[in-house]
């Protein structure tokens, strides 16, 4: 243990107003910002409110803004600020109403989750299994890494600066929809919902959500852009528009999507679905 000290300025208050209070803590190896908050809570300010669960970057409860950057406090090392002579500023996530101190009201996200139609799988194979190739599910597994910390929702300027909480689902729920849409077993078509209720058109691809994602999910390139393209194809392509006008509702099909690999920026075209899978989609 060292006797090094660090200074933090923490927002104390609620939605009606508050102030920054300054605290000093002793630091130790590996200490993260959440450790400092707990130390202050135990020894200086028992009433300091903070939401947390696992302290291992798995549950996504302790999102806040550290020096203005959206972070999980449990994954933010105090040593990252060693060279900065200024106190470490800790504020609640800006896009959500403040309940108390660092705790915000994120209930809007749970209401949005409820609007997503449930997964609707095709029937099982004759042998009782669902067959899927690992290659075909890796993209969706990436989206399913989401720990629902809502840092992306907090960062997205559509929500943060323009307050479109009710008209725009936000990155978390767009990739949740993408995860269902790209699921090899799913049979529902959610495009209309994406366009109208979820307001996918509001996203102008600034990729701020991708930048803050603690799970390093390529939210914009792998999730939102393919979904935007699919919605655009369907609703704004003049040929399809004509078919819809003349022939009634066009049979909706799930097409294969261009996706971006995780650690490169080379677009690769996803394998076509197996004949059987395509048939089951119809």
């Amino acid at each position: 243990m060292s006797d090094k000290k660090a200074t933090l300025k923490i927002y104390r208050g609620d939605n009606d107003g508050g102030e920054f209070k300054t605290y000093e803590v002793e630091t130790y190896p590996g200490m993260v910002v959440l450790d400092a908050i707990h130390d202050i809570q135990a020894k200086q300010e028992p009433g300091l409110a903070v939401r947390w669960n696992c302290k291992a970057g798995r549950c996504g409860s302790c999102g806040a803004e550290v020096n203005g950057k959206p972070k999980l406090m449990c994954m933010t090392r105090m040593s990252a600020y060693d060279d900065d002579p200024e106190p470490i500023m800790v504020t609640p996530m800006k896009a959500f109403p403040i309940l108390k101190d660092l705790v915000t009201d994120v209930s809007q996200n749970f209401r949005m989750a409820q609007k997503i139609p449930a997964f609707a799988p095709r029937p099982r194979e004759a042998d009782g299994t669902h067959r899927m190739q690992q290659d075909d599910i890796e993209r969706i597994q990436e989206f399913r890494k989401c720990i629902e910390c809502f840092l992306c929702q907090n960062t997205c300027h559509v929500i943060r600066d323009h307050g479109k909480k009710e008209d725009f689902a936000g990155p978390r729920f767009l990739i949740a929809m993408a995860g269902l849409d790209m699921h090899p077993l799913d049979t529902l078509d959610r495009r209309e919902l994406l366009k109208d209720e979820f307001g996918i058109g509001y996203c102008n691809i600034t990729r701020c959500c991708t930048e803050v994602c603690p799970e390093h999910i390529n939210i914009t390139d792998n999730g939102i852009i393919p979904m935007k393209e699919r919605v655009a194809d369907d609703y704004f392509d003049p040929v399809r528009w004509l078919i819809r006008k003349v022939g009634g509702e066009e049979k909706k099909k799930k097409a294969s999507l261009p996706v971006i690999q995780n650690e490169t920026s080379t677009p690769v075209v996803k394998k076509k679905k197996t004949e059987k899978a395509a048939k089951a989609d119809e």
Binding site: N53, R58, S61, F110, I147
Partner: peptide, 11 residues
């Protein structure tokens, strides 16, 4: 006790 989906099962 926590938000939905944050229980220790996530670990």
């Amino acid at each position: 006790k926590s938000l939905l989906g944050k229980a220790h099962t996530v670990m």
